[in-house]
Amino acid sequence: MNIVVLLKQVPDTETQIQIASDGLSIKTEDIKWVVNPYDEFAVEEALQIKEKLGGTVTILTMGPKRAVESIRTALAMGADRGVLIDDPATEGSDALGTAKVLAAALKGMEYDLIIAGQRAVDDDGYQVPASVAELLDIPHVPFVIKEEITDGKIRCDCTIEGGVLTMETSLPALFTTQKGINEPRYASLPGIMKAKKKPLDTKTISELGIDPSEVGTAGAKAKVVSMKLPPERKPGKIIEADSAAAAAAELVKLLRNEAKVI
């Protein structure tokens, strides 16, 4: 089973995001970059499948040089090799542009299964994995909390609002990981040592045969035209009362008469 994990490097979720002076991007200084949390589940699931069925796990990332650190983290967890598409022309890509780059890279690789996080917690786009599957013309299943592979088929439990759909599809296929599918392992010290020697190739988009005008800001079909902070919430009212019952009575009065929500 040759498995490719689509991995993105994102700001740590603790980060207080600030808008850069161009008004269209975020300040990247002082950000701690981490593996997208949902992609950690994807790496872990890939490793568990490999442990069961054999094969290889390849990490595929599009991003700047610093993304090497995140690929190394996945290699330290146990993945076999990494591929980084690092090209200034991809900067400002929208989800479709990113999917084009990843799909082009995948076309040059052998894969039976592609796994990605259900979304990246920076853009919250939910878009790249399904777009990659579409561009490769393979089936995909989103929001998966359990999977089982038998005889060239994969069965996935896909979470939807208030329920679970069990879907079966043929390989090659792509699925996206939802929290709850596994507990990602930590990289061990020997793992970290070994990761340093594992192959990690860096490629440009011209090596993938992609026209720069199709990707990056130039090729984006969804263009960011402004960026703003969410509206500040007005300072609230702390309800002071002698007892829990009195505080509750006051709160209910406010919710009914002032907020009109109950």
């Binding site: 929208d94 989800a95 479709l96 999917a99 919250d124 786009g125 939910y126 878009q127 790249v128 994995p129 399904a130 777009s131 599957a133 579409e134 561009l135 995909h140 989103p142 929001f143 896909c158 979470t159 939807i160 609002e161 984006a220 079909k221 969804a222 263009k223």
Partner: peptide, 20 residues
């Protein structure tokens, strides 16, 4: 969940922009 999935695959098929 279904709408997110459908819109993503649809936008890729049509090659158009999507705001999720």
């Amino acid at each position: 969940a279904i709408g997110k999935d459908l819109s993503a695959r649809l936008a890729a098929r049509l090659g158009v922009g999507l705001a999720m």
